[in-house]
């Protein structure tokens, strides 16, 4: 459904992505793995057009979207949930969520989505009138995901949802990611925690220095000892390492 073909991108002179090709079929969870600086976040930024594409094409539902503005990407319901959460600290939880539906006009559906989000993350309902900056890290991550969901995504781009969170919260969030996916949203998941990501993903890409080093079905990547050892820091240690 969403396809990147031979995409390259730069930060100034520094090449971030070198001819990467990725497919996200409808209804799937695809994960991007790799070390720091491999180009995982850059790939998401390229899709949401926060980072301009230098060469290559991006196609969504048979439409070339390589040269669109970020807001036009959001209109096509490809929603980016950026790294480090990036909630609006001086706005309340409620206001943060409302901004997520910024480009939508379907008021009734927005209300329904809001109550869905509260069923995923009941804590947000309790915190509704609090400033986002007063939330804990895990709650902020929930808010960031909730805010992205308010855009009613067909494709959700999640950047390290487990970053800096306690394992129990991480498990909770990953369960909800699966739940969101079951309801028909395709997900592109960037993760450091490779084992966890491969457990819920259908397909995985491993990035190395801005290139795709390896790709394959999730269970293949997960069960191949050599790959785990070489790329993911060893199967048994992976969870502890990251």
């Amino acid at each position: 459904m969403l396809e990147l073909k031979q995409i390259s991108a730069f930060y100034g002179n520094i090449q971030a992505l070198d001819r990467i090709s990725i497919q996200i079929p409808e209804g799937s969870i695809v994960t991007l793995l790799g070390a720091n600086g491999a180009g995982k976040s850059s790939t998401l930024k390229v899709i949401s057009q926060l980072l301009p594409i230098k060469s290559g094409t991006m196609v969504y539902k048979n439409e070339d979207i390589s040269n669109l503005e970020p807001n036009e990407i959001v209109k096509r319901r490809i929603i980016h949930c950026p790294e480090n959460r990036q909630v609006f600290p001086k706005l309340t939880v409620e206001e943060n969520l409302i901004i997520g539906s910024y480009l939508r006009r379907d008021k009734d559906q927005i209300k329904k989505d809001l109550s869905d989000i509260f069923s995923y993350f009941p804590i947000l309902k309790e915190r509704l009138k609090q400033y986002a900056s007063t939330l804990s890290g895990g709650e902020q991550q929930m808010l960031a995901i909730g805010r992205a969901l308010m855009g009613n995504p067909k494709v959700l781009l999640l950047d390290e949802p487990s970053l800096g969170l306690a394992p129990i919260i991480v498990n909770q969030i990953f369960e909800i990611i699966q739940e969101i996916n079951r309801k028909g949203t395709s997900i592109l998941l960037v993760e450091q925690n490779a084992n966890l990501a491969l457990r819920i993903a259908d397909y995985g890409y491993i990035l190395e220095n801005g290139r795709i080093g390896l790709e394959g079905r999730a269970e293949f990547l997960r069960n191949n000892d050599e790959i785990s050892k070489y790329y993911l820091g060893g199967k048994s240690h992976a969870a502890n390492l990251y």
Binding site: P70, V74, Q86, V87, F88, E95, I99, Y102
Partner: peptide, 24 residues
């Protein structure tokens, strides 16, 4: 209205505002 929300969103985080579809 939506205007004010977009303004404040830009002040708080340009990246997030852009990612939410605000034409910064």
């Amino acid at each position: 209205g939506n205007f004010g929300r977009a303004f404040v969103a830009i002040r708080e985080s340009e990246i997030a505002a852009e990612a939410m579809g605000v034409n910064v």
